[in-house]
Nucleic acid binder design. Sequence first.
DNA 1: GTCTATAGAGTGATAGAC
DNA 2: GTCTATCACTCTATAGAC
Lengths: 186, 186
Amino acid sequence: MAKPVAERAEVIPLLAEVFRTRGYEGATLGLISEATGLGKGSLYNFFPGGKEEMAREVLAHVDAWFTDHIYAPLRRTKDPDAAIAAMFVAVDGYFRSGGRVCLVGAMALDATREVFAGRIRTYFVGWIEALTAALRRRGEPKARARHMAESCVLEIQGALVLARALDDREVFARALKASRQRLASR
Amino acid sequence: MAKPVAERAEVIPLLAEVFRTRGYEGATLGLISEATGLGKGSLYNFFPGGKEEMAREVLAHVDAWFTDHIYAPLRRTKDPDAAIAAMFVAVDGYFRSGGRVCLVGAMALDATREVFAGRIRTYFVGWIEALTAALRRRGEPKARARHMAESCVLEIQGALVLARALDDREVFARALKASRQRLASR
DNA sequence: GTCTATAGAGTGATAGAC
DNA sequence: GTCTATCACTCTATAGAC
């Protein structure tokens, strides 16, 4: 038996980077093979469902990362303001200060949305609900908390679009700062 | 001479709809042919540069529409508040209250950005500068006007992402309303 | 009859599946 | 790596305006 070249789990971040930079349709198996160092045979061994399964696993991985690093702390915290501050730090790090695109957001705009609608929705619902929970725990009224959370998530997505369109990370930095201040005001 | 089947100008909105719904890579010539009712011969007669020229013309057409209906009124107006209000109405109409995606924003997130970076940038720079001009004419300080304009454009883009991700136009309506109120406060 | 715009079969390249 | 489908694009026969 041939020695496994890699663990399935460790290729997923590599796949994610290909999908993020090239989009779902632009991520050819050739590029994926190159990025992972895996032949097509190995890829189909790991992901019998092909490219669609790869993307599904990547989305699940992204969702898990956000759940662990962002949603769960927001939900659990005794100190909502600290958790929200931590969220902005994590988001800035994850999106490389605007230099990295949101794969889920990009897929939402693409025709691939139809295929992955469930996971895309889960990601954003999870984010908004976790942030809403933190804001409520801070004492915000229900409707206001929800609206603030929705605005915040939406601003981050818009900032990623604009930062990339203008090729200017400062746009992202400014937007994060403004969003943080808006959540801080009571 | 064979009878021309259409005006070049009148196929561009049809092309735009294909690119908008399928993305650049997902817009196959087969789909384009079907959507326009034009054979490949006609398409290549109109657009010798092929798919890339089609997309370039579509982007130019979108940019022209925004210039005519949004940027120019913002720049020219004697009544900035009315022009800004009109902008929100036009934007809501153009994006079908969140049911339609921003082609330029979607391309900015995609790998196609590299090919169309210039036009993508022009679109957003034009928007931000026009809105900044209107805000300045209303008496906002330069830096604040620019920042408000940037935030507004970014919120619209984010709202389009989120509305589509959640398949909920109300998200777009709420975001437009919030953005309008934020620009109105002095 | 001439000539141009058209339709769509044909081409080579390359995709994803296996 | 091989296979088949499908891609963007080319080419050619033809319809039809002049």
